[in-house]
Design a protein around this nucleic acid. Sequence first.
RNA 1: GCCACCGUGGCUUAGCGGUAUAGCACCUCAUUGGUAAUGAGGAGGUCGCGAGUUCGAUUCUCGCCGGUGGCUCCA
Length: 661
Amino acid sequence: MVHVTLPDGTVNEYAAGITAGEVVTDALGRKHGCVAAYVDGVECDLSTMLHKDCSVTGISTSSPEGMYILRHSAAHLLAQAVNELYPDAKPTIGPPIDRGFYYDFAMEPISESDLKPIQKKMHEIARRNHSVERVELGEADLRDHFEHNPYKLEIIDDKLEAGEGSTIYRQGDWYDLCLGPHVPRTATLMHVRLTSVSTAYWRGDQDREQLVRIYGLVEPTKEALKATLARLEEAKKRDHRKLGKELRLFHVDEEVGQGLILWTPRGAVIRQELQDFISHHLRRQGYSQVFTPNIGKLDLYRTSGHFPYYQDSQYPPLVERDLMKRLSDEGCTCGELSNMMSAGDIEGYLLKPMNCPHHVKIYASQARSYRDLPLRLAEFGTVYRWEQSGEISGMTRVRGFTQDDAHLFVTEDQIAQEVLGCIELVQIIFGTLGMEDYRVRVGLRDPDSTKYVGDPARWDKAEQACRDAAESLGVAWTEEPGEAAFYGPKIDFVVKDVIGREWQLGTVQVDYNLPERFDLTYKGSDGEMHRPVMIHRAPFGSMERFVGVLIEHFAGMFPTWLSPTQVHMLTISEKHAAYAAELAADLREAGVRVLVDDSDDTIGKKLRTHRKMRPAYLLILGESEVEGRNVTYLGPDREEHKGVPFDDFRNALLKEISERR
RNA sequence: GCCACCGUGGCUUAGCGGUAUAGCACCUCAUUGGUAAUGAGGAGGUCGCGAGUUCGAUUCUCGCCGGUGGCUCCA
């Protein structure tokens, strides 16, 4: 007999050897929806037999853990299907992920159109309803099972070295190396959908084999799968690349260059509003505005360390025409030229990859005393980075972008307070825009690495300042050792886009390195020369990326103050055009962005057209409005308000805008 | 950068070895219309670029450019 403690605290007595599944069924009934169970807190198969007293809790697909198990099992189903259709394909790894599952195979490349038959095969295997059995094997036996699969053998080597269990899971005549747990039968996996095929490197190593990766979704029920697919469709509509085109917010032109954003008038409004908004807070916090050029001499970036260390991710340098010609006449090869540039034998200019060296030079342009500090230099500085071509995407990953950058030159003692001030800015931005779904990452140094510059004691202090600042936010944050820049710790703000990809937006970084490299000093109250510390910070991060994420956050429906055209006036007929023009002039005088449509389309047509542009307010002006000197409008919620006195509308609108709502 | 797929007027898109659909947008005319498409007419494309195969290429092949999904990278 065994005594089993259930989640509600009751203790039941069963015959020894009863399975966890049977206990769960006994406790919750036959339709318990559980895919596995915790036995004494450890995830186990439902088929696990219980031989001693323990606690048992079912794991259902309503929990993240349950979904992970379902997805993991679906990955196995996928691998079995692929193996039945492509006997030579070698399964490698196939884990569950937040959005479903994938499995990597060593096989001939396949295309999207090959997914259908694979999916069909998966359904077929699911319907066969194989039981999924856990089998423990000895080492030799284990190797025999995977003798034709070098990838699995490599995993086995690692596992045995790490002392991990050597189990396989078998369904029908197919089996896979796996720790489990898994769903008990393949019929549980009926509701799968393969979504895409892609590639990945074996073990994420660019120098190793390229594998075929197949992605899929799985849900416990048909309805859930339908809902998930619908949600994905919905998300696609928010994609900033799609909306950016529809709403005419930005344009990327093949002929201008990959990853170079052209801000069209409507998008430029949003960016300008955001910049004005943050500028207001910069003045309040005592920042000084500066302007610096888009290029700088190579030597500057040799001193800063950006060149040649980050040469691969920069646009190639600009070299003087005469010099190029002379070198060319001398038969200098590209390789030689590159080497000479790296060695410092050739002078040239670089499109700036960062704003800091320029700001450093402003600091160094005059003697500084402790009374000058903190010195806060701010600039919307455009920087250029040669991102890998396959990485470029919409506005979120680009080759030229404008940082709402600033560099704070501070004394050691001022770090904590200034970091706090930077954090406050980020908080104001996220608060104003209602962005709540972000995570905070505090990047600390890896204690085992030697790549970091600066005194460990100062690092400790700066890391503590970052932790304290993050703590002051009142939101969840994580420490990530090894994620610090080589020159100092940092705080990053990360948000997700509609397809679940994470993007770093705001950042605050403490830097001991650049002041050292440029030999920056200030005279202290003690009359001695001291080294300032720099803080790099960009609350938006990059204007391009931020606006890209913002488009998706608002699904194109911006709050009134950001709306590219805040008020669209639609006339019923041309008889009302003069009234519309009069109101438009009045609102424009007050700084409101107004668009008047007095074309001869019908009002139904105009509404249809203008709704699509998602302005904050749609005004309908006809006979009754002209007579009553009022307006009828659809507000941001698209509720209709009839016959509102114009002044009331105007005042409420201006208030809303000034309050940045 | 790597792999797969994709590239037809401003946008969405049909099609195919014989120089090409349709809708929206645009222009003109009529219509003066009250809440998600008024009607009629018109203009607009060297089918991403270059080469090859062919009597003939938008269609087939190769290269390049660009996009999408991933991987790798991200000071």
